[in-house]
């Protein structure tokens, strides 16, 4: 067991991937000598060379498109998109090509490209640096989407993404890059399956489902609720596509109440999908409608008001109040 930050854990996970798979390579803007704007690739170019840690021209469509070509030729590109808001020049390649290649080749071709995207707000940044676009990708069949919330998962998930034969997008919670935790680099243990949700805290009265940056917020809210005598179960979804509905259903059958929280806007979001599925699967167990907590239907607001936008402990507690009022 070693203690490290999420950023360092991803760095170590990438190092392991590059070491174990000679055909793996990293591609992105400023990932070479600079080590990425978040230093996630720090030191890797010195260790593996410019052929395997590639500072690309400034063009996201080019990054994803050439990664697809490299993967068709048997390589394993792990692409870094610098910020969530800058993935869109590459959106065409991701959704029309990467996601569909296996299907349209009648299963003959695989394009196991990995795309890393730092996402989410709460860092007081300027426009396009705080967004949560995961639903746009989750809506696209052919992509898998995972998001770590702690260093151990971060270390293993990046490697599991690299091992996966499907394209995988890893959304990295940027405001938690410096969150420290224990990492077991010997074995993933309970994190062996990146597509399985984790129950982080058991409870009997309500379930709160979160992922990525909101995991610590939900745990804190559950602690606060406990002071009011409410026993709240917290689930870290970990995978956004596929979603581990079994774990969520099982929990809701026990607790009878479900809150889903994410930074992304609630409208058309992951929370809506979970609400619909759980209504189908656990209708008779529900004591209240599934309640979503998330961003508003507006472009991500300016830094000085992001606190009013982002779900926090109070917003989750308020949702719990509503769930208990039925």
């Amino acid at each position: 067991m070693t203690t490290m930050t999420i950023a360092k854990a991803i760095n170590e996970g990438l190092r392991a991937t590059l070491t174990n798979n000679p055909r793996a390579l990293l591609m992105g803007e400023d990932i070479g000598p600079l080590g990425g704007v978040y230093r996630v690739t720090d030191g890797l170019i010195a260790e593996f060379g410019a052929d395997r840690v590639v500072d690309t021209p400034l063009a996201e469509s080019g990054i994803i498109g050439t990664a697809i070509g490299l993967s068709l030729r048997g390589y394993l590109p792990v692409c870094e998109i610098q910020f969530d808001g800058f993935v869109f020049p590459g959106f065409n390649q991701i959704t029309t090509q990467l996601a569909k290649m296996h299907s349209r080749s009648n299963g003959n071709l695989t394009v196991p490209v990995v795309i890393r995207i730092p996402y989410g707000g709460g860092i007081g940044s300027i426009e396009h640096h705080s967004e949560s676009p995961e639903a746009l990708f989750a809506h696209t069949a052919g992509l898998r989407i995972i998001t770590p919330s702690n260093p151990h998962d971060a270390y293993w998930m990046i490697q599991q993404a690299a091992d996966c034969q499907d394209p995988v997008i890893v959304f990295e919670p940027k405001r938690r890059y410096w969150l420290k935790g224990e990492v077991d680099t010997e074995t993933p243990g309970t994190s062996a399956d990146p597509f399985k949700a984790h129950v982080l805290r058991e409870g009997t009265d309500a379930t709160v489902v979160v992922y990525g940056p909101l995991v610590p917020v939900a745990l804190a809210a559950a602690n606060a609720a406990a002071e009011d005598g409410r026993s709240v179960e917290v689930i870290d979804l970990r995978s956004i596509s596929p979603i581990d509905f079994d774990t969520v259903t099982e929990s809701v059958k026990k607790t009878g109440r479900l809150i889903v929280a994410h930074e992304a806007p609630t409208f058309g979001g992951i929370g809506g999908e979970i609400a619909a599925r759980i209504s189908e699967r656990a209708f008779h167990s529900l004591e209240a409608p599934v309640i979503r907590v998330g961003g508003f239907h507006m472009p991500y607001p300016v830094a000085k008001v992001e606190e009013d936008y982002l779900p926090d402990i109070d917003r989750i507690l308020e949702a719990l109040d509503r769930a208990f009022s039925y």
Binding site: F267, H297, P299, V302, V305, D308
Partner: peptide, 22 residues
Amino acid sequence: TPDIRTAFANTYVEAHPLVAEE
């Protein structure tokens, strides 16, 4: 210091029920 109400107000030109509800 701005107010998030401005962001609600400026999302659309015309009235939008979801924005109003939120």
